[in-house]
Simulated scan of single mutants.
Amino acid sequence: MAERYSSFDSNGSLWLIQRITAAFLIVVLAFHFFLLHFVNHASEITFAGSQYRMQDLGYYSLMVLFLITATFHGVNGVYNAVTNQGITGTPKTVVKWVLIVASLLLIVQGIRTANALAGIGLY
């Protein structure tokens, strides 16, 4: 039988966080689909409606947390997939830092967009 290899240490914190973020994402995605595809149909979604929803602190907070969680979950998964392919040394370090910088840029731009939709200005 083939040997199972994973870069995840099943006793490590990143392994646990990956599973927790997966569970959170399933719940938030279900909420998203229910709200934006069943309660409101695609033809009823407007920019003004998005602005209105983002002005609610609970919705805004959930969307920002969703952004951060999805970014971590996705980037951590990509990093571990690359690691599982056997990348080591300098290339592994370069991939890690490129993913970290891309994640930070994505989160910053996502929060800027959420702030703009919510009418939150940084003066």
Score class of each variant (00 low, 15 high):
A2L: 13
S7T: 14
S7C: 08
F8M: 06
D9N: 13
G12C: 04
S13Q: 09
L14G: 04
L14T: 15
L14Q: 13
W15L: 00
L16H: 05
I17Y: 09
I17A: 10
I17G: 05
I20A: 05
I20N: 03
I20E: 02
I20D: 02
T21A: 02
T21Y: 03
F24C: 00
L25K: 12
L25I: 06
I26W: 07
I26P: 01
V28F: 09
L29G: 08
A30G: 08
A30T: 08
A30V: 13
F31A: 11
F33V: 14
F34Q: 05
L35A: 10
L35Q: 14
L35D: 14
L35V: 14
L35C: 07
L36E: 14
L36I: 06
L36H: 13
F38Y: 10
H41D: 13
A42H: 05
E44F: 00
E44P: 01
I45Y: 06
T46R: 02
T46E: 11
F47N: 05
F47T: 07
A48H: 04
A48G: 10
G49E: 03
G49Q: 01
G49W: 00
G49F: 00
S50L: 12
Q51K: 08
Q51M: 15
Q51W: 01
Y52F: 12
Y52W: 12
R53M: 09
M54P: 00
Q55H: 13
Q55T: 13
Q55Y: 07
Q55K: 15
Q55A: 09
D56A: 11
D56R: 11
L57E: 11
L57Y: 10
G58Y: 07
G58A: 07
Y59E: 11
Y59S: 08
Y60R: 05
S61L: 15
S61N: 09
S61C: 06
L62S: 12
M63I: 11
M63E: 06
V64W: 04
L65R: 01
L65F: 08
F66P: 01
L67F: 00
I68M: 04
T69Q: 01
A70P: 01
T71I: 02
F72Q: 04
H73S: 05
G74T: 14
G74P: 00
V75F: 12
V75Y: 08
V75G: 00
N76I: 02
Y79A: 11
N80A: 02
T83W: 02
T83D: 11
T83H: 10
N84R: 02
Q85S: 15
Q85K: 15
G86R: 03
G86I: 10
I87A: 06
G89Y: 03
G89D: 12
T90S: 09
T90G: 04
P91T: 03
K92F: 02
T93P: 00
T93D: 07
V94K: 14
V94Y: 06
V94Q: 08
V94M: 05
V95S: 05
W97C: 01
W97I: 13
V98Q: 04
L99C: 03
L99V: 01
I100M: 09
V101S: 04
S103E: 12
S103H: 01
L104D: 04
L104E: 02
I107Q: 03
I107V: 09
Q109T: 15
R112L: 15
R112D: 14
T113N: 08
T113F: 13
T113M: 06
A114Y: 07
A114N: 15
A114M: 07
N115W: 12
N115I: 02
A116E: 09
A116H: 04
G119W: 04
L122I: 15
L122F: 13
Y123P: 12
